[in-house]
Amino acid sequence: MEIPPPNLLTIAEVPMTRITEFCDLKSILNLRKVCHDLRNFIDDTKPKISKIKVLGFEIFEDRIIFEIDDRTLTMDYKDDKKGNTVFSMDQKSKILENSNFFEIFSNDFCGFLDFQGPKFERIYMDLSKMSPNSLKKFLEVFVENLKKRKEKIKVKFLPLVLLDQEDSLEILKVLDSKFLKKIQIYFENFPENREEKSWKIDKIMELEQWKNLEKLVLHSKIEISDFRNLGHLRKCVLRVAKITVEDLKILKEVSFF
């Protein structure tokens, strides 16, 4: 009887666990791309690797760039316009046939959270380089995957580049409000050559994540209807579209002024 050649899937669980414990992050991420069985094994056993503190991603019309620990590791998910996703890491590419790059990235992001742990110092998201219609489709997939997780994401600092406050609402809701301490927002005009406008954050202010916030940095011109909503912040840096004498009186009473 011919004995099949050994492969990773035929290795017993204990030796396989020991093998993954000696893998670095790049190796683990590559193994997750081999097949569903290996991905499920890694997600279930959660190999012990050095903790990642920073995540970030930029989304475009046809690609997503996912960065770990300030570009220590960069992954690229690209739509090849033929119904496939081209996944690249370390100058090596793999074609994932019959796949949507939104879904592949979202699954990988959530899988990464599962085996890495939900605590991070910073998660950076640039949602400004995609058209509003495409962004809506991406957020539907991305947020739905995040909502399926048992734990909310614990991140201390959330820098965002947005087209509108609406784009951030569902993402903010899946963050642990007790852990999030600082938000930084830059609103990008779309298209880029349009005159600068002022932006609203009134809906963001209604979220539980806002109420426990300590620091806020807003790089774009903001409309504030009630400055008392800033009163709980320890530090606030912002540009306002307009301000009245009454607003200044309120600001004199808050802690960061």
Rank of each mutant, 00 (worst) to 15 (best):
W199S: 08
L25D: 04
E188N: 10
N98V: 01
V237P: 00
K173I: 02
E223T: 11
V86N: 11
K152S: 08
M205N: 04
C35D: 14
I3W: 01
M75H: 07
R32E: 10
V217S: 02
E121S: 14
L127C: 06
V14R: 11
F157K: 08
D69E: 13
I64T: 12
T20D: 00
K235M: 07
P15V: 12
I64D: 08
L146P: 03
I104N: 11
D62R: 12
V237F: 09
K252T: 05
E206R: 14
I222Q: 01
K33F: 11
L218T: 01
K215T: 09
D247I: 05
S27M: 08
E206H: 05
N212V: 00
E58G: 05
V141D: 09
C110Q: 00
E144D: 12
G111D: 07
P132Y: 01
F256V: 06
F138R: 00
I153K: 01
S131F: 00
K182R: 12
R228Q: 13
I222M: 06
K178D: 14
K154M: 11
L31P: 02
I11A: 08
D79I: 03
E166R: 13
K94I: 04
E223V: 14
V14T: 14
K181N: 09
R194L: 14
I49T: 08
D44L: 13
N84E: 09
R39F: 02
L55W: 07
L9V: 13
S134H: 09
R239Q: 04
L160F: 14
K137M: 10
E140P: 00
Q165N: 08
M125W: 05
V217H: 02
S93Y: 01
T17C: 08
N40G: 05
N107I: 14
L25V: 04
E67I: 07
E61I: 02
M89Q: 10
I65Q: 13
N189T: 12
E195T: 11
S225D: 15
D24K: 07
L31M: 15
K33W: 02
L216H: 04
K150G: 00
I95S: 05
V14H: 11
S198K: 12
E253K: 11
V14I: 15
L113M: 10
K173A: 09
K173V: 03
D226P: 04
F22G: 04
I52N: 05
L175I: 15
L127H: 03
K51P: 02
P15A: 07
F120E: 05
N30F: 12
C35E: 04
F120Y: 14
I201R: 02
L29R: 07
L146G: 06
L163W: 02
F142E: 00
I250S: 05
G56H: 11
L158I: 11
D90H: 03
P4C: 06
I171C: 05
F22L: 09
F142L: 01
E13N: 15
K147G: 00
M89D: 01
N98D: 15
D44I: 08
I59W: 07
